[in-house]
Each structure stands twice: as structure tokens, then as C-alpha cells.
Design a protein around this nucleic acid. Structure first.
Lengths: 227, 227, 227, 227
DNA sequence: AATGAATGAGAATTCATTCAT
DNA sequence: GATGAATGAATTCTCATTCAT
């Protein structure tokens, strides 16, 4: 699946898979540590235990290596998140578990997640599009879970896209701002606190009343969008 | 203020300011469009209307240009956001306005905000630290506003750091995922929808009850952080 | 031996030797003709028949090329001079032959010898030290030969260091001032004349008597050192 | 005198002299310390207390600065050495004093003397020729003194050019090899030891007899030139 | 298939020199 | 006369990519 987007001069598919794994693993580490441009193909080859020339048997250009790395992460998301809710049926529990699982996958792939944020622009437009499509797929898992919750009436009728992104961002920002959170919260605390805000809202009942008033009074009447 | 972090061989401060503006403006555009590494100093110089050599009269190395660009954005945040709430006294209104203002500054500097996410790793450690410090400052504006709301009882006693980051992410993700949102929402709609979720919560009353139950039933008892 | 002081990314030692020879030969010619700074790596590469990039496979920086060139000359000295006296046993004859051989090696490497005088300052301190050590080694060959002559009583008890340097300078100055000597003397004549002065002294018997008197009468009594 | 070889756009001769002195003094120090190519015109200007542009009012190109520096040294030689023997009449004493004086001027201008050795090649051919002519002039002082000694019979009939150079080298090598001599000899000791060798010869009487035999027996009959 | 030496285009940076003020 | 900002040619060095073995 991953392979099909990147061409190789080598025939044997097993070998391709094996070598690509070596290369992607090495590249993920190096790109994460030093960034895409600071990492040379020689670096990658060396860490992968092959020669520089060999890398080019499995990849047409350096950017392909980045693409493979990013696709790898997204594929892990797409595999692991659905697996986490396989056995669950309650819509709200499924939604909560998705977020929980998402955060945990991100935690495991922290470096690569950050890499995805940093490096997408390093890709050519077609490759970037490919990545965005994969990302959208992952988000659809969330969106569908939200809609399911709305259907059973546990989630309000609000903008699904926005909430989807907010939930995704909960996961991603654990990686993006880990330098900030790490010293203050455990992952579990972080997940709980994030869900608490997003699900129950930050305001007290008094606050919510006031919030509604302020919104109505807003000189930007077109703001009211939820539904 | 920005200048003091980067050395220049030119003496005249007015000239420094003028030229640096030319350079930073050009660099912001190019770095945003093509990324830091794909942009050459010659590109920047040309767009800035000076020679390549001249750039080096105002900057010691290429990385300094990136630093100046990033500092510029952060400084705009630090200036414009406080200005937006100058005349307001109501804590909740201040908090809402901060988020609103933050989103609008980000919208204006969309490219540079994305750049900041992508390029911080391209900086040397000292320069990266400098950026993080500036970022933290902006966040303190939000944190203080949240605390003020808590003091008057309109915001629940929840983890301030997490909510701070969530609000910041509302603003940042408008830039980060603009390719996705742009076609679906206006900025105003986006702000309203985001605040609605974060302030009022995504769940219905039924949902909240269920949410509390699920949390209590969770096999990760340590998850429950302050309600 | 030469190689061990300069790093190379190429593994094959035979290839290293071969390519380094190409590079050093080309560089010796160009550095001698135009000087170190006026010669570009591209010039060297071209004359060596390789690409500029290839030079950097065998050398880490331009200065390394200079180092290799200088070490080459000194190594030739260290090889050829001892060889010339291998079969000789008479101390005075050995000393004379050393000077003769030294002059002839210098003559063959005239350009590089001058280069050594001119370019040592272009080296980094560590590399400069390395060169000076090699130079000192060559001089020890002379010093030992002088001492051997003193032991059998054919050389007076005088300052060995000074005489060593004077003999070395006989050789070096053939290269340094070749523009002056070339039109007046052959190498053989130059060697004979130089040895004649240094060994037999410039003065007549009358002169020597007078020299002793003048020295004694000198108002710088601390001058008299020989012995 | 010095000035006439280098053009200036400034009219006032006194000013030219004053500024050139500033520039030459600064350049002498910097060229000696760091070499010609490692020193920038800005460095020179700064140390001279003027602006970079000003240097170019008194000099057409960077090489001119080097020329002025070298001419300065040679001129000092040409002034100070003759002055030292003004009052002396005895030929041998004059010769000895010339060498003594030469060594002392060199000692005072050690850095610049080394510079002259290192940097002549950095000059254009015409400028190099100019330097060589000046050098020849200084040597003629020595040559004339040697011939005077030969005329009164205190110096043997030997090759005057060679002895001239040997005496000059006594002085120069004090500068060239100061890193070696400094720790072993004082200047006075060095002068005395050098003159002792060159004037009285390195060999004992036994040595000289043997030397003559070896020379006659030499398989290079064309060697015998002196006398 | 694998290697790793070779290539050469390309980029950052420096600095002699000029010139408007 | 003096200044110092501006220029841009030139140079070192890197590295993705190729290709003979």
C-alpha cells in the first residue's frame, strides 16, 4: 500500500518491503532529530546499514523517502485507531476512546508526528495531496464517531468539522508542544483534561448564560453558526 | 527590540530598521511559499530589492533571517492581542476577545504562522529557545484571562495550561489547516464554532451525564483530573 | 604516512594514494606558480584531472591540500638525504655529502621549497606544528653529522644549532634566491662555494688574527660565545 | 620615495605621508600576524583609525598596501645599515658591523622581514621587481664591504655573491627561524656564533686539510670554483 | 542487487572596490 | 577629503544523483 506510491527498480517485493523498512526507520529517526534538509541520503543509508547507492534502488529521489516516512505514520494511525474501538458499541465511549487511542499513537510516534507538521511543505504538490488525503481519512473516523453521537443525542448539533479538528488537535498538540506539556502533565492527565474541556465545556452555568448573552450582543451577528 | 538579537555591521539604526523590514518582508513571503531551505539568500535579496551582499550587512547568517521573520510574527501577536482588549473589563468578554483577536492576527499572518511551526527546528538551540520564550509570553496573556474568569466564577476550575493551549490552537490551526477550512467556513464562523465547543462543551446534558459515568467507570482511575 | 594526517571519505587505500598524488602534484605546481590563495580548488581539480567534488573526497578542506603538499616535500627530504650517505663512513665526507644532497633535493623541489617558506603561515596552528616537527627531523640529520665531525676533531667546538641552520640555509636559499643565483652560478658551483666559506672560513690568516682582536675589543663582551 | 611608486587621489603631500604611515603601520602589524590574504582592507582601515573608503584615497588596490609595507622595511634597512658604519674605516670592522647592524634591524622588524619572504609572490611582477631591486641595493652595501676586505687582504678571494648572500641570510634567518632560535640563543650570541663560522670556518686545521683532499678527490671536478 | 567513487550544480558567505552623501 | 553602505564577482564546500564495477 505504502509502496505503490513510490517506484523502485528492484523487482522482488519482499526485498522491497524489507529494504524500505530499513530505510524508513532510519530516515524517521534522522528526519525527526535533524530535519529533512539537514539529513543526507548518506546519513540515512548508513543508519539503515546499506550504501547510498542502494537507497536509490528503492526510491527515485530524496523526497520519496520523506513521503514514505509520512505515509508510514499515517498508516499507523489508520490501523491502530480503528482497532482500539473494534469491540465498543456505545457512541460516546467510542468517541472518547478514539481520542484516547489517537493521543497514545501520537505519543508513540511523537517525533514523526512533528515531522509531518514540519515537512509537508518539503513535498511536491502531488505528494502533499497524497498526504492530505490520508490525513482526511483518519479524520473521517473521528467525524463519523461524532455524528453517531449526535444521532443518539449525546453530542449537540454543532459543526462537525470543527470539532473533528479540535479532537485531532488534542492528539497532535501533545506531540507539537511536548516540550511544554512534558514537565507539567502526564499523558493520561492531558487526555482527561482535554476531553473534559471539549466535552463538558470550560464555562460554569453562570458563564454559559453570560456567554450566550455576549454572543447575541456581538456586533458580528453572522458569528452564530453552531448547528 | 527584534533587532537586538541579531548583529549588523551597519551602524545607522534607522537604516537597519528599514533594510531589515525589506529583508524580513521578502523572506516571510518566500519562506512561506517555498520553505526555508528551498529559499536562497539571493532570492530574498532580489525580492527585497537589494544585493545578496547587502543582506549580510544586516544579518550574520541565513538562519538569522529566519529568526527575524519568526520574531516579527510573535511580536505582532504580542502587540495586537493586548491592544484588542485594552478597553474591555468583563473577564469573559476579554477572554473571548483575545481568542477572536488571536485568530484574526493569525489570519493576517497565516503564512508566517505556519512557517513558525515548520521552521523552529531549523534554528540553532539558542535561537529556538528565544522563540519559545516569546511564545510563552503570548500564552500568558491567555492564561491570565482564564484565571480572571475563574476568579469571577465564569470558568470552571480546570487545568489552565491545557485550556490555554486549546485556545491558542484554535487560532493556530486556522493557519495550519487553512487548506481544509477555507472551503468550508469563514473565519467568523470558525471562531464562533470553536468558542462554542470549548466554552459550552460538545455534549448535551444527557451526554454529560453519560460522560461523567464513563469517566468514573474508566479503568484508568488516575485520568480524572480536577473536574 | 602522509595520508594519516588528513582524513578521507574514500576507503580504498590504493585509490587514496593514487588520487592524492594527482591532487598533490597539481597543487604543488599551482601553489608554487600562483600561491595558495590565488589557486582555487577548481584549478587544482582541473589540473589533477578530476572534479572539484572529488578533491573533497580525499581532503577535508583546502588547507589540507597545502598540508599534503608541504608534507610531501619534507618527506622527500627525509628519504633522499639519508639515502645519499648510506654508504659513507667518514664523518666529514658524510657532512659534505648531506649538504650536497640537500641542495640537490631542494633544486628538484625548488618551487615547493619556496612554497614551504611562503605558506606555513597559511596553515592552522596544529598543521603548522606538524610541519615544524618534520623540519626539525631533517635538521637532526645535519646536527648529528656535525657532532660526529666534532668528535673526530675535524669540526671546531662551535654552536651546533647555528651551524646546522647555516647549512640548511645553504640548501634552502638556493631555492629562495634562485632568481638571483641562476644567472650567475651553476648548482655545483654554488654548493662548492658555499661549503668553502662555511668550512674554511671567509678570512685569510691575517684576517682571522684581526677578527679575533676585533671581537675581543668589542664593546659587547657578552658576544663571544663560540666554544 | 616610497610614495612615488603608488598613486593617490589626494593632493596634499603631507596628508598623504601621514595617512600612508597610519595605513602602513596598521597593515604591517596585521599582515605579519595573519598574512596578506587573511587581512581585509577593513581590518587595516580600522586599525589605522580610518574608514575603508579612505584607504582607497591613498592606494589604488590592496596589493599597493603590501608594496608600501615591504618598501618601508627595505627602506629602513637601506637607512639604518649604512648609518651604523658611517664612522668606521677599518674594512673588516665595517663588514662585521654591517652584519651586526643588519641583524639588529631585522630583529626590530622581525615580523615584516618574514612578511617580505612570504608575500613577495603575492605581488604583481612589476611590483615584485621593484622589491628585488631594493633588496639588491642593500646587498651591494655588503658586497662592497667584502670587496674592500679582499682588497686589503683580510678576506680570501672567494665568490663575493655567495658570501654576500650568506651574510644576508645570517640576518634574515634570525627572523625566519626565530621560533627555533629564540629559546636557545640571544641575538648577541647568535651574531657572534654566525660570524665565527663564516669568518673563521667551521673546520679545524686537520679538518681543512681533509676538506681539501675530499674536494680534490670529488668525482665532480667542476665543483672547484672558489679562489 | 549492491556498492561507493565520481560528478557538478548550487548555495552561503566574504570582501575588494565603488560611489553617493 | 572622508565616510561607510552597497555591490556582485568569486570561492569554498556540500550533497543528491549517477554509474561502472
Amino acid at each position: 500500500m505504502v509502496d505503490s506510491n513510490v517506484s523502485s527498480v528492484v523487482g522482488n517485493p519482499d526485498l522491497i518491503e524489507k529494504r524500505r523498512k530499513q530505510i524508513v526507520d532510519a530516515a524517521t529517526k534522522l528526519f525527526s532529530d535533524q530535519g529533512f534538509y539537514r539529513t543526507t541520503i548518506k546519513d540515512v543509508a548508513q543508519l539503515a546499514g546499506v550504501s547510498a547507492g542502494t537507497v536509490y534502488l528503492y526510491v527515485r529521489e530524496k523526497e520519496d523517502v520523506l513521503l514514505l516516512v509520512l505515509l508510514q505514520v499515517l498508516e499507523d494511525y489508520a490501523t491502530e485507531i480503528p482497532k482500539s474501538i473494534e469491540s465498543l458499541t456505545d457512541p460516546l465511549q467510542r468517541l472518547m476512546t478514539i481520542v484516547d487511542a489517537y493521543c497514545r499513537v501520537v505519543d508513540r510516534h511523537r517525533a514523526a508526528t512533528v515531522l509531518a507538521y514540519r515537512s509537508t511543505k518539503s513535498l511536491s504538490p502531488e505528494r502533499r495531496l497524497l498526504i492530505q488525503q490520508h490525513e482526511t481519512e483518519t479524520n473521517q473516523i473521528i467525524s463519523r464517531a461524532i455524528i453517531a453521537c449526535q444521532e443518539v443525542g449525546v453530542v449537540r448539533p454543532l459543526n462537525v468539522d470543527v470539532l473533528t479538528y479540535q479532537l485531532m488537535l488534542v492528539a497532535h498538540s501533545w506531540a507539537l508542544k511536548s516540550w511544554y506539556f512534558k514537565s507539567r502533565l502526564t499523558l493520561d492527565e492531558y487526555i482527561a483534561a482535554s476531553l473534559d474541556t471539549l466535552f463538558a465545556g470550560a464555562l460554569t452555568d453562570t458563564g454559559k448564560t453570560q456567554f450566550d448573552t455576549l454572543r447575541l450582543a456581538g456586533d458580528r451577528p453572522e458569528q452564530g453558526v453552531q448547528s
